[in-house]
């Protein structure tokens, strides 16, 4: 379904993504982890074609999407929606209009210039908002919403594209634990119910473990781990993050957990410290 081969990105002499290869054969929820600067964002941006790749192949359903240009490139972009850490909404426009931006790829330029969208699109947008539990904010300006609500608007915009893949670049990094959980659950539900592939950059291990079917660990642009959450032990995580013995998983956590989990984590940390 998705095949990445030798994907590389160089910024001048600096290699951000280094010869990344992996395959995904069915829609899954994939988490990419790695420390800051590991190349996670660059990978997703190359996939969405916001950043040009230097080398390699990224084939989706048998077609390499990297050389696409013009209309074909835009069509690919609308198949592969992107969610950003800072939401990247248009703050001064209302929520529904922001969601409707997901249809820009398939609607005529002229009509959209004047904000003329078909009524069915508007209905669909409101349904999607309802599905994400924020329909009551439909008429507000995006900037009037909380961070978690804005991120759900961004997810709604992505869903509006009716994509096969949803890329999420640290979708919960600027959210509080409560909102982070809502957003991650929404993404998971989209995967479960619609069967869309979700690839999310995450910087908290427990989130990745909890929501993802498969985890890819990156370090200095290279894939250093690719496996199930169960295979991601603390030792492996320490390798991925290139941390010393004092590495604490809790430090990367933003999730709300019940007491039991916290206790478990504390015990684990204690072991690590020993």
């Amino acid at each position: 379904m998705l095949e990445v081969k030798g994907l590389t990105k160089r910024f001048g002499g600096n290699i951000a993504v280094d010869n990344v290869s992996f395959t995904v054969d069915r829609p899954m929820m994939i988490g990419i982890i790695g420390r800051s600067g590991a190349g996670k964002s660059t990978f997703l941006r190359m996939m969405n074609r916001l950043t040009e790749a230097s080398e390699g192949v990224l084939a989706f359903e048998g077609r390499n999407v990297l050389p696409l240009v013009g209309k074909a490139k835009r069509e690919w972009q609308s198949t592969c929606a992107m969610i950003f850490q800072q939401f990247n909404l248009v703050p001064r426009m209302d929520v529904v209009s922001n969601v409707l931006h997901g249809t820009l790829g398939r609607r005529s330029t002229l009509a959209t210039m004047f904000n003329l969208y078909p009524e069915s699109d508007i209905h669909q947008a409101i349904d999607i908002l309802d599905r994400l539990g924020i329909a009551q904010h439909a008429e507000k300006r995006a900037e009037a919403l909380s961070g978690g609500q804005q991120q759900r608007v961004a997810i709604a915009r992505a869903l509006m594209q009716d994509p096969k893949v949803i890329l999420a670049d640290e979708p919960i990094a600027s959210l509080d634990p409560m909102n982070a959980q809502t957003v991650m659950e929404a993404l998971r539900r989209i995967h479960d119910e619609d069967g869309r592939m979700v690839i999310a950059n995450l910087h908290t291990l427990d989130t990745a473990r909890r929501y993802c079917d498969r985890i890819i660990g990156m370090r200095d642009g290279r894939v250093v781990f690719d496996g199930t959450p169960a295979q991601l032990t603390t030792g492996v995580a320490r390798d991925i993050y290139g941390a010393g013995a004092d590495f604490s998983e809790a430090a990367t956590s933003t999730e709300i957990r019940d007491h039991h989990d916290i206790e478990a984590a504390e015990i684990r940390n204690a072991e690590v410290a020993i």
């Binding site: 690919w76 950003f84 990247n88 909404l89 248009v90 790829g105 961004a154």
Partner: peptide, 28 residues
């Protein structure tokens, strides 16, 4: 540029990118 990127990521055409990514920001 985040807003422009948000619009661009949906596969919007250049004119649409200006219309929704740039114009709402500079109009005020």
């Amino acid at each position: 540029s985040k807003q422009i990127e948000g619009i661009a990521s949906t596969g919007a055409k250049p004119m649409q990118r200006y219309r929704f990514g740039v114009i709402p920001q500079i109009v005020p």
